[in-house]
C-alpha cells in the first residue's frame, strides 16, 4: 500500500486480531490438552504428552459408541449435502422469477431456518409418535436437519445467483442450446463454485447439528449427540480428543471445498483450458 494508513486501521487491526484470538484461542487450547499425559487433568499444566486419550477413544469401552456415531454422522452429512445441493440449487433457480406464491414460499423457508431447532425436533418426534413410527437418524433425523440446511442453501444460492448475469443463459439459448444443454454447459459450470459452497454448508451444518437431531435421532446417536452426552458424564481429556478428531474432519472437508473453489476460480482467471489446448495439437 503506497499511502499511509490512518491510525484507526491499526486500532481496528488490533481489535480484529483479538477477535480472532477469541475465536481460535480456546479451540487451540483443547487441541493441545487432548495430548495430555495419562495422569493429566482437564486443564493446564500438561502432565506429559501422550496419545492416551485418543487411544481411549478407539477402545470404546469407556466412552460409548464413538466410532458408530462417527460413521452415522458422516453418512448423514453426505446425504444431507447431496439433498441440499440438488433441492436448494433447483429452488434457487426457480426463485429468480417472481411467481404467484413466491413470497409465501420464501417466508416459509425463512421461518424454517429461524425456528428454534429443538421445537422442530419436538414436532417431528411428536409426528412420528402419533403416526406410530420409530424415530431414527436416517429419516426423522435427516428431515430435521434438512429444515435447517435447505433454507441455508437457498440463501447461499440467492447470493450466488444475485451475481450471475442472465445474459449468459440468453446467449446460450440464442446459440441454439436446449434448456438442458443450457443448464449443463453454462449455468451449472458457471455456478459450480457456489454449488460447492452449498455442499460444504450442507455437510458441515449436518455434521455438527445438535438441537434438531436431539429429539429425532432415535436410539442410535449421531456424533454431536454422543459428544453432548459425554460433556455430562466424561471428565477426562477424552472429550478434548473427540473434539480434536471431529474438528480435523471439519477442517478436512472445508479445505477440500475451499481448495476446489479456489482451483476453479484460478483456472478461470488465469488458466488456459486444457480441452481446447489438446484440440489444437
Amino acid at each position: 500500500m503506497e499511502d499511509k494508513r490512518p491510525w484507526t486501521f491499526y486500532a481496528f487491526a488490533a481489535f480484529f486480531t483479538l477477535f480472532v484470538l477469541f475465536l481460535y484461542g480456546p479451540m487451540i487450547v483443547i487441541y493441545i490438552l487432548s495430548f495430555q499425559g495419562p495422569n493429566g487433568g482437564m486443564t493446564f499444566p500438561l502432565n506429559g504428552v501422550s496419545l492416551h486419550w485418543f487411544e481411549a477413544l478407539i477402545s470404546q469401552t469407556r466412552v460409548g459408541d464413538i466410532a458408530g456415531a462417527f460413521h452415522r454422522s458422516i453418512g448423514l452429512a453426505v446425504l444431507v449435502a447431496l439433498i441440499t445441493v440438488s433441492v436448494s440449487v433447483l429452488a434457487g433457480l426457480g426463485f429468480r422469477r417472481r411467481f404467484r406464491g413466491s413470497a409465501f414460499a420464501f417466508y416459509f423457508a425463512i421461518a424454517s431456518l429461524i425456528m428454534p431447532g429443538l421445537f422442530v425436533g419436538l414436532g417431528i418426534a411428536l409426528t412420528f409418535r402419533l403416526l406410530g413410527l420409530e424415530t431414527n437418524w436416517y429419516l426423522s433425523g435427516l428431515g430435521a436437519q434438512l429444515t435447517w440446511t435447505l433454507p441455508f442453501g437457498l440463501l447461499i444460492m440467492f447470493a450466488v445467483l444475485g451475481r450471475f448475469n442472465r445474459s449468459y443463459e440468453e446467449a446460450a439459448t440464442d446459440l441454439g442450446a436446449t434448456s438442458w444443454q443450457r443448464v449443463k454447459e453454462v449455468t451449472l459450470p458457471m455456478l459450480l463454485p457456489g454449488i460447492i459452497g452449498v455442499a460444504l454448508f450442507g455437510f458441515t451444518l449436518s455434521y455438527d447439528e445438535l438441537a434438531r437431531t436431539a429429539l429425532t435421532a432415535g436410539s442410535e446417536n449421531t456424533l454431536p449427540l454422543e459428544i453432548w452426552a459425554m460433556t455430562t458424564n466424561v471428565t477426562s481429556p477424552t472429550l478434548y480428543a473427540v473434539g480434536a478428531v471431529t474438528t480435523i474432519v471439519s477442517f478436512l472437508v472445508i479445505s477440500i471445498a475451499l481448495g476446489s473453489i479456489a482451483f476453479i476460480q484460478r483456472r478461470r482467471a488465469l488458466g488456459i483450458r486444457q480441452e481446447s489446448l489438446a484440440a489444437t495439437e
Binding site: L90, A91, G94, S102, G123, A144, T147
Partner: peptide
C-alpha cells in the same frame, strides 16, 4: 417452471417443518 423447481423444497419443508409444527 418456477413452481416445479421450488416444489421439492416445499414438499420437504412441509413434511418436516410445516406439518410437525
Amino acid at each position: 417452471a418456477s413452481w416445479l423447481q421450488v416444489t421439492p423444497l416445499m414438499i420437504l419443508l412441509t413434511l418436516f417443518f410445516g406439518l410437525p409444527m
